[in-house]
């Protein structure tokens, strides 16, 4: 197939031996690049050591508590060295008897999109490609399929005879994205949050294809966030800075929810359309909604068992 190409480069005799030689040289160059960060010899021995250890660390789920603490410390130190930035990376574990759930009031949302903006800022989402975990659509009455809605509405809201529906990751109990991942880089935590180990993701995007809810986002380029806008309160499985070529998604703001706080979207919503809480607490607001309001889940027939309900007054 490539005969022409090979022939057209004169003096390049390709044999198995020379190919292997070249491959070995490439590997050597590659690991040198890993050590130096690819920018010459100006990197300190400390940085090189940190990068080396970061590269060969385990999948987050296989780490011991000490190893988790060590990688978190390394990430904080690296941010300090590289960007002169003091970040606080948490590795807070899930809590006992907590299963997070979310409810969205489609009759009360006014389409202001404060949630989308708050999410972008909270989760250090790439500003250049305009990555958003939440998408909000202006819908015609009677429609319940967000693909029929319009997300680019450039007029004052709420518009007459329209309603607004937001979609994001629904944190399915039986999540297709988890099954699709060939490297086990994504899983569901015991508190129900579906997370990604960004360092274990190979960027194959199978999960993106598997998700029936358009819940996942891919970093086609190096994510860009202005340094002064970076949210420094981070979580290893949440809003720490992603790299080029990895998958990311809504984590119910794991860095906030595991501290007992509401996700940024729920806190930012000026209309109270977003209800978040512990499904295993019979007294919680989310349980009140499930018990007393008309609720439905999107594409429930797929059997994905999402923990995100829509409800109406």
């Amino acid at each position: 197939m490539d005969d022409k190409k090979l022939k057209s480069s004169p003096g390049q005799k390709s044999s198995r031996r020379s190919f292997l030689k070249g491959a070995a040289a490439l590997t050597a160059a590659g690991s040198a690049g890993l050590l130096t960060g690819g920018c010459g010899g100006s990197v300190s021995a400390e940085t090189m050591g940190l990068q080396w250890e970061e590269f060969f660390k385990k999948n987050y789920r296989l780490m011991t508590p000490e190893e988790k603490q060590a990688t978190v410390d390394r990430l904080e130190r690296l941010a300090r060295i590289r960007h002169d930035l003091d970040i606080e990376v948490s590795n807070r574990e899930p809590r006992e008897n907590v299963l997070y759930g979310y409810a969205f009031n489609i009759s009360r949302c006014k389409g202001y999109m404060d949630c989308v903006e708050a999410c972008v800022r909270e989760n250090n989402l790439d500003r250049r490609s305009k990555t958003q975990y939440i998408r909000l659509f202006e819908m015609d009455p009677g429609q319940l399929d967000p693909t029929s809605g319009e997300g680019r509405y450039f007029h004052e809201v709420p518009a007459a005879n329209k309603f607004y529906m937001g979609v994001q990751c629904f944190h399915c109990e039986n999540a297709p994205c988890i099954k699709a991942c060939p490297t086990k880089a994504t899983w569901r935590e015991p508190d129900g949050i579906v997370v990604v180990d960004y360092d274990w993701c190979i960027g194959c995007r199978y999960c993106l294809a598997a998700c029936p809810y358009w819940g996942r986002r891919f970093n086609w380029g190096e994510p860009e966030v202005p340094l002064d806008e970076i949210n420094r309160r981070q979580h290893y499985l949440g809003n720490r800075m992603r790299m080029k070529g990895v998958m990311e998604k809504c984590t119910f703001c794991i860095q906030r929810s595991r501290e007992g706080r509401l996700p940024a979207c729920a806190e930012a919503c000026p209309t109270g359309s977003r209800v978040f809480g512990n499904l295993l607490d019979p007294d919680s607001e989310i349980r009140f909604v499930l018990k007393n309001k008309k609720v439905f889940r999107f594409k429930e027939d797929l059997g994905t068992d999402p923990k995100f309900w829509y409800f109406m007054d």
């Binding site: 389409g111 999109m113 939440i134 967000p146 693909t147 997300g151 004052e156 709420p158």
Partner: peptide, 12 residues
């Protein structure tokens, strides 16, 4: 009534 903060891209 007010202008939305931002906009969303289509799902596909």
């Amino acid at each position: 009534r007010k202008m939305p903060e931002t906009y969303s891209l289509p799902l596909d």
